[in-house]
Amino acid sequence: MKILVTVKRVPDPEQKVKFKGTSVDVSAANWVINAFDEYAIEAALRLNENAATGEKLGETIALSIGPKDVSQQLRSALAMGADRAILVGGADEELDSFAVARIVKAVVEREKPDLLLMGKLATDGEASQVPQLCAALLDWPQATFAAQITANAEGLEVKREVDTGIEVKQVKLPAVVSVDLRIISPTAVVNGKTPATHAYQEGPRYASLKGIMAAKKKEIKEISLADLGVKAAPVTKLVSAEPPAGRKAGVKVKDVAELVSKLKNEAKVL
């Protein structure tokens, strides 16, 4: 099937967050692919291949929106195995969830994929809004937080982990699916072609050196918002961002009686 998979670059979550005035300072950020988007790429590649024979079953297109140097993250998706990439030019500060959803919708209308596959959230803003907004704007069925995906005659069966157990959804294609962490476990994606006995390595695949060389020849098509006929026009405004207050030092108690007294009278948890 033809899969459009979205790729957002985020500051490396392992890097210490810096603040400048009332906003997050990303000038020295080490940019990486949002982890959940990397899982979505892996899920797309698994859906579109017979892992036993190496046969390709469909086209995987990586899409990103942002400044030109997002090409590094798209190149990484191509090196993992995506067939081609689209980079829509845009300024980070103008791209709120609604703007991104409208841009993705415009690309979907051009590319007409069978499946829009996305990470469940981006680790920078943690909004978890874009997949749901896209489904609404496209009027497509959605299955969010996918822990397992099985391709079948009617479309996709998606299993999602909820508090009470596993919820099973069946969606017709075209559809929007957002993926959760579990989608990268060894047998989480079933496409009916890769033998059921095949266990993938846990996690998103590494780009092999041959994959990296092959990616140099793959296309990253750059298009502008004007080409798409979309204005970013964000509807939310970042008012301020500040680090959480540092933790206060704890206190030492003499005995159990004092501990219980403090829990009861000061912390009021007993």
């Binding site: 590094q72 190149r75 990484s76 090196a79 590494y206 780009a207 092999s208 050196l209 060389m213 990616a215």
Partner: peptide, 16 residues
Amino acid sequence: EDEILVRDNMRAFVDA
């Protein structure tokens, strides 16, 4: 770009 990709992928491979 590809040199950075090689380095980062080998780094993740060595970590794992």
